[in-house]
Computed example of a mutant assay.
Amino acid sequence: MTRNEQVAATREALLRAAERLFAERGVHAVAHRQISEAAGQGNNAAVSYHFGTKADLVRAIAHRHAESIERNRQRMLDTEGEFTDLRGWVAFAVRPVTEHLDSLGTPSWYGRFIAQTTGDPALRALTSEASSAASPLMGRLTEGLNRCLPDLPAEVHAERAAMTRHLITCMVAERERALADDEPTARTSWRTTADGLIDAITALWQALATTGA
């Protein structure tokens, strides 16, 4: 291997090890030394050398997956065109994520990694920043939902967008965990998991909005 190939292989091993440990134990419970050991690196400073801080490592993991999900979104738009109904835009939010999880095989850790990071305000800001940088098409999603629900108050729209993110995150993490532990799942595939999420989230956006203090 060339020097560049060795560096790339080491970075990949560290990313995969960190993602798994963060998903299984939580970000704050994992030290750089443990990541280096899990990646087969004898140098305990490998994480700092290749990525810097733990925050930089979290950002790198989130960005890598966000890029793949964004490619799925672009393919969906290229295939189906601009959506004209609410269910289409909800599918645009859901299917690129479940298709990415499907492509990772079993076991995977991305769903549980995101569930861990979104539970912490500081880490949520990091992953949101990394995902936003790699996901310009998310702006199209917001615009599409606004067009389908023009009378929905802005504060309710923001609230339901947050509910949508949490529902997708929690459900994909739960399915990923069950698959890794060889436990029964509610749905037989990632595609049908997406179907169930789209049903529920579409109904969520259509629910009567009660506003006021």
Score class of each variant (00 low, 15 high):
1 M>N: 06
3 R>V: 13
3 R>F: 10
5 E>H: 12
6 Q>W: 04
6 Q>L: 09
15 L>H: 10
27 V>M: 07
35 I>D: 00
40 G>N: 10
47 V>Q: 04
49 Y>D: 01
50 H>E: 06
53 T>R: 15
56 D>Y: 00
57 L>F: 01
58 V>M: 12
61 I>D: 05
68 S>G: 02
78 D>M: 01
86 L>H: 01
88 G>A: 10
89 W>F: 15
94 V>L: 01
95 R>T: 07
97 V>R: 08
103 S>R: 12
108 S>K: 01
109 W>C: 08
112 R>G: 11
112 R>M: 15
113 F>A: 13
115 A>S: 15
115 A>N: 14
125 A>E: 11
128 S>E: 06
128 S>L: 04
128 S>H: 04
130 A>L: 12
134 A>I: 10
134 A>V: 04
134 A>Y: 09
136 P>C: 02
138 M>G: 13
142 T>P: 00
145 L>N: 04
150 P>A: 05
153 P>E: 03
154 A>H: 00
154 A>C: 00
156 V>N: 09
157 H>Q: 08
158 A>H: 11
160 R>N: 01
161 A>F: 12
165 R>K: 11
167 L>Y: 09
174 E>S: 02
176 E>T: 08
179 L>T: 03
182 D>W: 04
183 E>Y: 01
183 E>T: 03
185 T>S: 08
186 A>Q: 15
188 T>L: 10
188 T>G: 14
193 T>E: 13
199 D>S: 02
200 A>N: 07
203 A>W: 13
203 A>G: 06
204 L>Y: 07
